[in-house]
Simulated scan of single mutants.
Amino acid sequence: MSMTEVIPLADDVQAALATVLDPEIGRPITELGMVRDVAIDGGDVTVTVVLTVAGCPMKDRITREVTAAVEVLPRVEAVHVELGVMTDQQRGDLRELLRGGSAEPTIPFAAADSTTKVYCIASAKGGVGKSSVTANIAADLARRGLRVGVIDADIYGHSIPRALGTTAAPTQVDRMLMPPTGHGVKVISMGMFTEGNAPVMWRGPMLHRALQQFFVDVYWGELDVLLIDMPPGTGDITISLAQLLPHAEYLVVTTPHLAAAEVAERAGTVAKETKQRVLGVIENMAWAELPDGRRWTPFGEGGGAAVAATLTRELGYVVPLVGQVPIEPGIGTGGDRGVPVVLEGADPIPAAESLRAIGGWLANQVARPLRSLPFVGSTTGGCCSSGMCATC
C-alpha cells in the first residue's frame, strides 16, 4: 500500500477515535491522551489505548467502542485493540487537564461561573422517602437528557447506590475519584467505601471532611444539576453544606401526617438561618389507590400543604407544594432492584406519573438563570449568621 493511501486512512482513524468517549469522564479518549499509538498494516488497524488504572472496570466497553468506531471505515478489514496503563506522569497530566490547570482542587459548584444547579432533598424527619424521591427525580432528569449527579450525604444511612442500580466502586485516577454511573446518573456515596454492611461511626468533623471530599476529590465533569440526598435532622451535614455550598437550594420532603409535617418544617426554616432558598415541598406517601378507584389516606391529609404554607409565611416568599406522590409498592421494589419507578414503561403507575411531573417541574427550574442570593457569614469567617455552630 502506498503512503498516499495510508495517510488518509490514518487521519480517518484518528477522527473516528475522537468520537469515542471515556465512559467515566465523558470526554474523547484522544483529548485525554489515552490513544498511545495507531498502527496500520494494509487493512489491519491496531490501536493502543492506555487506561487510567490497571483493571479499569470500563476496559471492555472502551475496547468495544474503539472497535466499533474504526471497523466501519472504508478499507479497514480488521481492528485490534491493545490495552496499556498510564504512567504516573500521564495520570498527573490528566488530573491537571481535568482540573483546568488548578494546582489545588476546589469545589466546582461553588465557583462564581458554575452553571450547575444544586438541590438538597431534605427533611428533618426520617422515613419520609427522601432517598427514593432523590433517586427517581435524578433518573427522570437524566431521562430528559440532563447531565445529573447525586451525592448521598446520608453518611450513616446511605442507600442511593442500590436505588440507582450501581454497585461499582469509584475509579481512582491520581488523586481524583471517577464516580460510577447508574441509569445515566453519576453517583457517590459512603456505601462505596465501606465493607459489606458495616456501619459508619463518625463524629461531626469527619462528616464534614467526607462531604467536602465528595465535592472536591470527585471528578464530576460538567453537570446541569446535582442532587444531594440529605440525612434526617438539621445537624452537622446541614451546617457543613451551608458553609461549602451556600447557594444550594432545598426541596423539603414530608408525608401527609401533621406530626411528620411539623418536623419536616424544621429543615425548611433552617434555611432562614443559613440564607439558603427553599424551592418547594414534596408530599410523599400521599394516598393509596384502591382497586375501586377510591383513595385511602392511612397517614392523614394536608401535611404537604401545611408545610408549604408555614414555610411561605416564615421565609417571606412563596414556597409551593410541588407535587404529591401516592403510595406505590413499586417504588420500594424498584429501589431494591435498582430500577427507579419513573423508568418503568409498562402500565401507567400513578406514583411514577407524579414523580415524572415533579421531574419536569424541576427541569424547568434547572433551565432558569441562577438566582443571586447573598450569603451572610459571621465576621469571624463562620458558616452562618446565627452563631448556631461551633465554627461561628
Rank of each mutant, 00 (worst) to 15 (best):
L164Y: 01
A198H: 13
E328W: 00
V173E: 04
Y250M: 08
L21I: 10
G345T: 12
L211H: 07
A135Q: 07
D229P: 03
D113S: 14
G330N: 12
D37Y: 07
W220H: 09
Q324R: 11
L32C: 12
L21R: 08
L321E: 02
T63H: 06
G182E: 04
T115N: 14
F299I: 06
W296H: 15
P8Q: 08
R144Q: 12
M1G: 11
S159W: 01
G126P: 10
G268S: 05
T46P: 13
V225W: 00
L226M: 14
L321S: 03
V118Q: 06
T106P: 09
I62M: 07
A390D: 10
D113E: 14
A367H: 01
L211M: 14
V53K: 07
R371S: 10
R337E: 12
M86T: 02
L244T: 05
A242T: 06
R371I: 12
R61K: 15
R277G: 09
T46L: 11
R143F: 01
L373A: 11
G101E: 04
V322G: 00
V148N: 02
S189Q: 05
V318Q: 11
V150M: 05
P256R: 00
A135K: 04
R61L: 15
T269N: 09
R277T: 14
T167R: 12
G129M: 04
D174Y: 09
D11A: 10
G92V: 03
S354T: 02
F299W: 02
A168Q: 12
S102L: 15
Q90E: 11
E289Y: 05
V148M: 03
P369I: 06
C389P: 02
L164R: 00
T67N: 13
P326M: 03
P350N: 08
G100Y: 01
P57T: 09
P350Q: 08
G42A: 12
L373K: 09
L73Y: 01
E262Q: 14
A260M: 08
A10N: 11
D154Y: 05
H208W: 11
L258V: 14
